[in-house]
Design a protein around this nucleic acid. Sequence first.
DNA 1: GTGCAACGATCTGTATACAGAGAGCGGGAC
DNA 2: GTCCCGCTCTCTGTATACAGATCGTTGCAC
Lengths: 235, 235
Amino acid sequence: MTEALPTPEDTVARLYAELRRMAAGFEFRPSERLNESRLALRLGASRTPLREALNRLVAEGFLDFRSGQGFFCRALSPEGIFHLYEARAAIECAALGTAIDQAEEAAIADLAAYLDRTEGAYIRSTDPVELLEMDESFHVRLCALAGNPEFDGILANINGRIRYVRSIDLKQMRASGAVGERLSAHRRVLQALVARDRAAATGALRAHIEKRRDQATEAVRLAFADIYAPKGELE
Amino acid sequence: MTEALPTPEDTVARLYAELRRMAAGFEFRPSERLNESRLALRLGASRTPLREALNRLVAEGFLDFRSGQGFFCRALSPEGIFHLYEARAAIECAALGTAIDQAEEAAIADLAAYLDRTEGAYIRSTDPVELLEMDESFHVRLCALAGNPEFDGILANINGRIRYVRSIDLKQMRASGAVGERLSAHRRVLQALVARDRAAATGALRAHIEKRRDQATEAVRLAFADIYAPKGELE
DNA sequence: GTGCAACGATCTGTATACAGAGAGCGGGAC
DNA sequence: GTCCCGCTCTCTGTATACAGATCGTTGCAC
């Protein structure tokens, strides 16, 4: 189920997709060093294509590289997450601004249909992954209305790098019964877009993302406290 | 990205820096296929580290990769350039907005000092490369005031990919004696920043970048006409 | 002259080998 | 018990070898 999309024979692409998924979900712990030989063995390839895939992930900010020491998982910090959400707000709001000027009515209608279609699942879903995909997908589709592949690429990169904390944020929202809040934020943005009301649309989108930014940053901050404070309860 | 210092001995970093420079300046022609063996020989390394560097540049959008066919220089099109400038405006304006809220007075003063310091060279310079570096540097410093490394990284990437057309644009401005216009645009942005006037600052910056966007896009469009109808009134 | 097909040279994709650097561990001094 | 030194073993960084795919070219049919 997870291994289908990259063409049957393309080792580097396969490794890249697999490693990106692992890195996005912090299956490597923050700042952990990666053992190339073990990883290559586990993924069924040699170190040569593995390192090519790893280099791509370094360029995309999923991994770090230190000469002579190899590849490391990226660090996880409240500041880093804050900056990623801030960049995300910048890109999404800019894309929305362009979309308000230029998106076709039909494309906007498609997005509205998507929101209607997923509304039920959004509220009732108990699957965190499904929830995450739906949230991400709404924002990706919104961004795509601008018709600028640069926006899409930057957003896809950021989405991968915040995926882990976003899923934590979503779990917390679900636990506190606040999923509807997110959904209504999406709907508010969409309505302003339909009305071609730039100030209302970008304002609503920015407020939504900044709220998620603060929640996600706080969640990481608390996790940090857990990691660095308690010598006591471990094991 | 403005890469980390290429330490004396780090083959991949050296190759990456060299290839990035070459790709940025379109020393490979648009859509040209790269011959790995020849390139490795020319750069004094083997294909293994070369391909690692090439993979990083693919991830950054400087090169394309097609499985089974190898690496290609990115295409050059008016639409592509338009999208890059549009993304640049989004990032720089967002960074400026953050800077207006949060930048220290001292940091803003540094930028003002930089502008004063380079003003003379800016107007008198006959070296296109120097002109390009100064223009780019002003915008990079402005962006850095936001204190968000994500903004800096995205801008560095875009700067590399528009470097070629930007230098053409600068040459044309110099030829038409319009360099002062650009300088005054920078100064207008700075003054609004000093006054912490968000609307004026982002408005001025956006207008400046969008003007450059249109000029650069048009320059590429004309070059396209030259390429695809090169024989004058033939046929 | 044009289109197609098969051949050959070239190039890519991956595995493997090996040298040198780095990290971890044990032992010794204090 | 703690710190430091040196050793060893592992891992990284790069070169090279080789299999399979690709592209250009030549020759043939029409």
